[in-house]
Design a protein around this nucleic acid. Sequence first.
DNA 1: CGTAGATTTGAGTTCTGTCAAATTTTGTGG
DNA 2: CCACAAAATTTGACAGAACTCAAATCTACG
Lengths: 233, 233
Amino acid sequence: MTLPPEPILEQLESESVRIPTRKPQRIALAPPATDSIFMIQSGVYLLRVKWSEDRHQIPSLLYPGDCLRSAVVPPFEKAEIAAGTDSGEVWRMRWPVITRMMAADPRLAREVTDRLAAQSARFALQNVIIAGLNGDERVAAVMLELALRTGRQTPRGLEFEMPLSRTDIAEHLALNADTVSRILSRMRGSGLITPAGRNRLSCASIEALVGECPIAGLIRSLHEPAPAMPLAV
Amino acid sequence: MTLPPEPILEQLESESVRIPTRKPQRIALAPPATDSIFMIQSGVYLLRVKWSEDRHQIPSLLYPGDCLRSAVVPPFEKAEIAAGTDSGEVWRMRWPVITRMMAADPRLAREVTDRLAAQSARFALQNVIIAGLNGDERVAAVMLELALRTGRQTPRGLEFEMPLSRTDIAEHLALNADTVSRILSRMRGSGLITPAGRNRLSCASIEALVGECPIAGLIRSLHEPAPAMPLAV
DNA sequence: CGTAGATTTGAGTTCTGTCAAATTTTGTGG
DNA sequence: CCACAAAATTTGACAGAACTCAAATCTACG
């Protein structure tokens, strides 16, 4: 799943507010009180929600092409999209407007609907990760996801972004920052991963991560770039 | 959220396969390999997925009016809708057909889209329940949900359905059946809940449950019957 | 009325959380 | 480019919640 095809992107852009972001920047999901839809153009983002004084969670990471309708996020005390990468761009559109465009153009309707469905599937997957895996497996799961989404083969192995701090990882995986740190130390010790510069990690290969995560297959199916083939003809 | 208004229901019915169910009956989500959409007409159902030889999970309960598009469930080894109540009815529609109906009728499009969004929000909520609450609070959360959805005031207190076995509750809450049993024993002991016949429980009032669950507000917002007011005019 | 399956409960284990201190990294101003 | 303060990370020691295993009950049903 990447960005929609050009003609559709142009249509969407015409109704979008383009929001370029830098690293710790956050975009509130609710404030305008209007039902909106956000589409990631570039970069990695963190959907972060707050549900009590000091309890935050990151139900999902967002990548280019991902769509998030604000109405699919329950009415938390606070909900925002936080920039994970140094730079990136998000488009915000008003849902009623998009609705009208969808009514007029079935191709566009299909793109948007399917992307929203994909986001829903990701929430469901996150349930399984948190509910069914232990700490080590959960961490392997996020790393596999990031590797599939942002990984590049280099002479030193597969390098990928790690836009999450220890606390972020903890909030994403329902663990605790100390525990995450311990798990990562172990993984570093066993040679599964090695630091590869600022906010980057590297591992031998995808297979190395797959071996650590019992639901690798599901993660691949939702995050692996599709074999090159044009969408919807 | 209850069933859609009559005229829309009629349209949907014209393209539906109506599936009446009895208690342990299950409807496979995937087999037809076609992208389908299911709408609950009556009864309570359990969305149950299997992701390894002996690991099952119940990511969501489904109530009348709820819509589930098969594509929003990741490609698990197995995924099915299991009847929780003695009797109930589900409608199955083919997604491509519904898509066409949506293109032709904005009212219907809105109903379906919003119901799918609601389902997505429920997945997100489930994440928070599992990730942020302890055992007791999670159990209180499901009971609050069931009480809001199926509860009725009686002389002996608020009575509601409990269509889930201990194992089901465990699979829904990322706990273990033994632990669930212990928690329920404690709740019974403290008088929070009392058995009220076959697959039914009763509690003093909604407030009693709300007090046990830190995110009661969110649960109410997604499950409480809306104050009587016609949808979409 | 007996059996298979579900539930309950106890005892012991394990994983993760909590707290606190040490260490490293990051960002900023000279 | 360097020094420093603030923030993030790491790590140890300990506490607790939940899991596992197994035995005892209880229930639903034929």
